[in-house]
Design a protein around this nucleic acid. Sequence first.
DNA 1: GTAGATATGCTACACATGAGCATTAGGCAA
DNA 2: TTGCCTAATGCTCATGTGTAGCATATCTAC
Lengths: 346, 346
Amino acid sequence: MTTTADTASVSNGSANAMAGKAVVIGLNAAIVTVSDDQPRILVVPHGENEGASSWDALPFGPFDPTHHRTLEIGLRSWVREQTTLTLGYVEQLYTFGDRGRHAIEIQQSGEHVVSVGYLALTRSQGSELSGAAWRDWYDLFPWEDWRAGKPVIIDQLIVPLLREWAAHQSDATTDELTRGKRRDRMRLCFGVDGVAWDDEKVLERYELLYEAGLLAEAARDGRPNALAEDPHLGRPLQFDHRRIVATAMSRLRAKIKYRPVAFELMAPTFTLFELQRTVEALSGLHVHKQNFRRLVEKAGLVERTGRMSTLTGGRPAEQFRFRREVLNERPAPGLRLAPSKSRANR
Amino acid sequence: MTTTADTASVSNGSANAMAGKAVVIGLNAAIVTVSDDQPRILVVPHGENEGASSWDALPFGPFDPTHHRTLEIGLRSWVREQTTLTLGYVEQLYTFGDRGRHAIEIQQSGEHVVSVGYLALTRSQGSELSGAAWRDWYDLFPWEDWRAGKPVIIDQLIVPLLREWAAHQSDATTDELTRGKRRDRMRLCFGVDGVAWDDEKVLERYELLYEAGLLAEAARDGRPNALAEDPHLGRPLQFDHRRIVATAMSRLRAKIKYRPVAFELMAPTFTLFELQRTVEALSGLHVHKQNFRRLVEKAGLVERTGRMSTLTGGRPAEQFRFRREVLNERPAPGLRLAPSKSRANR
DNA sequence: GTAGATATGCTACACATGAGCATTAGGCAA
DNA sequence: TTGCCTAATGCTCATGTGTAGCATATCTAC
């Protein structure tokens, strides 16, 4: 397992001079489900003994190319092994190669790890997960849940702290230009000064808060502006795993709008309101009920089963099922949301 | 650089059993420009001596984590070295770890290579590129250019061949279900039977043609259904590089609709029609001129310079420039296209 | 039976989109 | 100088889509 001279066989022409150093590939799975109207992420306990290092981690493991033909096969294989879950929908997110900023513990081991993040969806199941546990998205990202209106944490904590960060002349590098850019990013990310909230900017918001030093991970990594004490926003994860979850949320929130992925999280049959709740949970937004129904039905995404639901109070709702044929009819069938301002029609 | 027992430090719990094998990471750049209304991709000659192996390759090189802090820095560094180009906009596309299907030549070397594909944009420049050359997208993907209407190759060659592939009972695995799925994919990918053409499905179409054995790469890789002789559709590239370009096209065609990336390809000032031509070149679609103007101006993406263009016949056009402030105003400023059916208003 | 809670159906309206017509302003040739 | 050609630019209008609210139906609980 050494990097030998025949590395040149994979490089072309002038690249020969640059020998490729071997690295280990880490596979990370952001496994998402929705239960009780809450989106959740699967974590495993991380067995570190140090002080603050009892943070959860994502299911995580190295890629062994001699055993698995593709990255995705490797991922599925050991997720099954670690958590007894057999994944259905799986999608690659991003490959992180940073050796500085994130995952300093890995860095210290002297090995070079490049980690590939994956998003996976699974129906909620109460089965045993051998140590793994579900965590609410919005425990990790309290500022992302707008279903009950703008989270108070934004105006109360985040925006003031970010304003301070943007205004502060901490060192020579924070000139007026930098400060202006910081203000702009804050406005755009958190919908200040009349800028609209964009539910898909989960990753941008996470990175902004990280750079501003407001996350526990920033303190852990020794970032220059990091606040040493609280407030640290949201529940941190080990390594750069919260960042991977943020990437997953961004991707998923974008994708439900043009692909019927939300159905991966539903039972085989469901009421339209249950579907709506799931979509709201993922997007963190509130949806106009009647319009949602119209949209879903007109788009041909569901079909009636004729059966009625054992209701939960109120008029019984009809059970629907996902209409798989829609995949063969339209190029981009999804649930483009109509986030509603008023919450009159919950 | 050996994989020692301390791999465990990057794995948790039950993953310890799986030691991570070290691999080499290859970085591939799909560098795109637009000149003379043609989108082009930068290729380097690939110095193989075998028969059909004189195919071009993408700029390509291994990642050396001891020299470069991030994957992207590594990419920029040797693209500069290989082609004298300094990249501006760079975006990661996808990480391919397949050991079977693609890039068999790498596979034969006995090394495990995981390749990370990148999309880069650059303004057209006529400078020397030390051996590198620009190739037209639509030489690689002749079926993707709908600017002058539906390419004849689709109805004349592609659809008949795909129909044959879908109908053919080549082996035991092609049961009726499989054949039905093949027909559905064909319909959806190539807009058969009234299905709308989706400009973003570049990758899906490429993969369909590959699986159907209609590409030279499929023959090279010894795919079961591959046609041994012509017709092979489009100009092939070395390894899985045409697939990476397809990924880049898909991403770029999607992204111009919600991010102002098209301006990365424009000169500092330009006429609206020049901008339209660039967008049309990328999307492969035809755009209604007046509506395009209205959209771009109303979206606040550009601002007037007052100067007029030294016209190219006809009334002089005003020069515009990109209005950078738009990035701080709206969450997702882009050029959502209005592809026009009729071509009366070219 | 009445109140409460949903499901479900329908309508009004603002605005975006798609397509075409009309006018303007230059070059160029008769 | 005039008229023609070409392309830029301005404007209109039908249609589609998104947004929100009102109204009615149908169940459970008390």
